[in-house]
Design a protein around this nucleic acid. Structure first.
Lengths: 157, 157
DNA sequence: CGCTTATTTGGAATAGTTCCAATTCTCACT
DNA sequence: AGTGAGAATTGGAACTATTCCAAATAAGCG
């Protein structure tokens, strides 16, 4: 079923090899960046972060690497409304809560039992490879929480 | 008949009025089109369909109308992976099954109990206004079917 | 070491959507 | 019925996110 120690930098080389792909500095740093700050960054945001370590990397490569990581099942791509795709290195089954105020996204633990129950609503013949659960709302803590948001920070329009 | 079923063309004028908006031919036809063929069309597809009735409508207006309908809670906007937003006039709580083969999207009944259970996984202080459940996989027929949907066809637009 | 193939890169191209300014339509009020 | 204010529509330009492409680079392998 699932793999024992998935979410570590070292898993990368292994997984890549398994898929007949090479471990490159770009792929490593992109993955590291995702592991280091798990705030569901966009490709652009990953680009910025990776550049501090690999100043010459190109945005196209960031897209390539992210795609590769998704292929290898090391990273999940998440799409909220219209906006850019966000990337999440959390492999455990979880839902996403999208705080519309701050734009931040939080992982929500998804109990296996519930996951099963959700799958169970599918009629026969529907074979779901994956399921995505996305909440939208306000993570209205009594006190405002530390900024985790990428929400409007960049969305200068 | 049923007040509980707002998914009728007539509901439109009412809802619009409630929001202080006007009922226009464009809005009516856009809504009709959604009700008539519930295959989760994209804005483009709606545009094409509406044009047969209102040949001079513009794509911008279709976007406007769809947005308006979403605001009025008559229509849900759904986003699968990177692709265009799709529109769904089904107001009852339901999940979506996205068939990766055909590109088609099916509504899946969502039992209220399950919906509650899903909401229950949220930690306190998380106030979800809505939840979206999206399955991805292969639907239905035990035997493979030739190409059909809007999947990755590039020329079909 | 040179060959082959994978990977990266920058820029151009594309898709989907939004923005904007000008026009047209509606409605409320004389 | 006429008019003015505000809504709504329209076409096209602008924008954003992403993909495509062809050339340059890097790596593994014999």
């Amino acid at each position: 079923m699932s793999i024992a120690t998935p979410t570590t930098p070292d898993a990368l080389a292994q997984r890549l090899a398994d898929s007949g792909l090479r471990s490159t500095p770009q792929r490593e740093v992109v993955y590291d960046v995702l592991l280091k700050k798990r705030d569901h960054p966009t490709a652009d945001e990953v680009f910025v972060r990776v550049k501090t370590e690999l100043p010459t990397i190109s945005l196209a490569t960031v897209y390539n690497c992210l795609e590769t990581l998704v292929q290898c099942d090391l990273v999940r791509a998440v799409n909220f409304e219209r906006g850019p795709t966000r990337y999440c290195p959390n492999l455990r089954p979880h839902a996403h809560f999208h705080d519309e105020q701050s734009g931040a996204t939080h992982d929500i633990e998804l109990p296996p039992v519930l996951l099963e129950q959700v799958h169970a609503i599918l009629p026969p013949n529907y074979d779901a490879k994956s399921v995505e659960i996305i909440f939208r709302g306000a993570a209205g803590s009594p006190r405002p929480e530390p900024v985790e948001g990428q929400g409007k920070a960049k969305a200068a329009r």
